[in-house]
Amino acid sequence: MPIATMLDYDFMRSAFAAGLVVALVAGAVGYFLVLRHLAFAGHALSHVGFAGATGAFLLGLTPFWGLLALTLAASTAMGLIGERLRGRDIAVGVILSLSLGLGVLFLHLYTAYAAEATALLFGNVLAVSDANLRALAALAVVSLLGLAAISRPLIFATLEPELAEAKGLSLRLVSVLFLLIVGIAVAEAAQVVGVLLVFALMVSPAAAAQRLTTRLKTGVALAVLLALAETWAGIVLAYITDAPPTFWITLLSSGAYLVALLVPQRLEAASTRP
């Protein structure tokens, strides 16, 4: 299809708007997720969301709110476990698979259309409704304001937990607040790339950014830019080629990470200027 007329379509405009909102949140929150070595926990959270979304189907509720509710509940639990969450890959993985299992059961009971399950699992950014978009934007504002409010202690607690504690900071409080924000970000990202591929928007861009710069603020900005560029480019490529946007986004985000890995150390030194 001709690119020139792309923006004549409502669904395309909505897709770009949703992509913008979600990339802002996923990139920024993802940066701290990676910094705190919680990438896998974030991945698992989205799967818990899957059980929530399919459960909401069953109860006749909007799946997005079911996804968000269960994700936030799991975030709180993980936050309370706190620092000990690190290295708990097995426990997190068990919860992840249980959640997917429950999701499958709920889908079975609901006898849902495959299309709905696919959209949940792999996202469908080309089918974002206006109501959806408003909810995404409102949640993005909440999570970004929350992230701004906790960013200073979050950085301190992440880099220097022992010292932060000695200075009177509650590591557990920081951990719970941050994971609640992660919960929102995961629910948002799932709208674009689906619960299975939240990694592509939250982890890969952030990890690439951390390879490319050693400055914190530059890193956050770069993670957001990468997430946004990958999402928008993915939507455009899907429009041109007919392959789903999620495919393009995962391809671009993996590609960007790979390129970041290959960037020689020289560039790294150049990027350390203030």
């Binding site: 701004a148 409010a149 200073r152 202690p153 301190f156 607690a157 880099l159 932060a164 050693t214 400055r215």
Partner: peptide, 18 residues
């Protein structure tokens, strides 16, 4: 992979919100 500057600076009033 952060600079020493960023790490040192994180402790300056690091317990305050914002």
């Amino acid at each position: 992979r952060l600079t020493g500057w960023d790490v040192v600076a994180s402790a300056l009033d690091g317990h305050r919100w914002g």
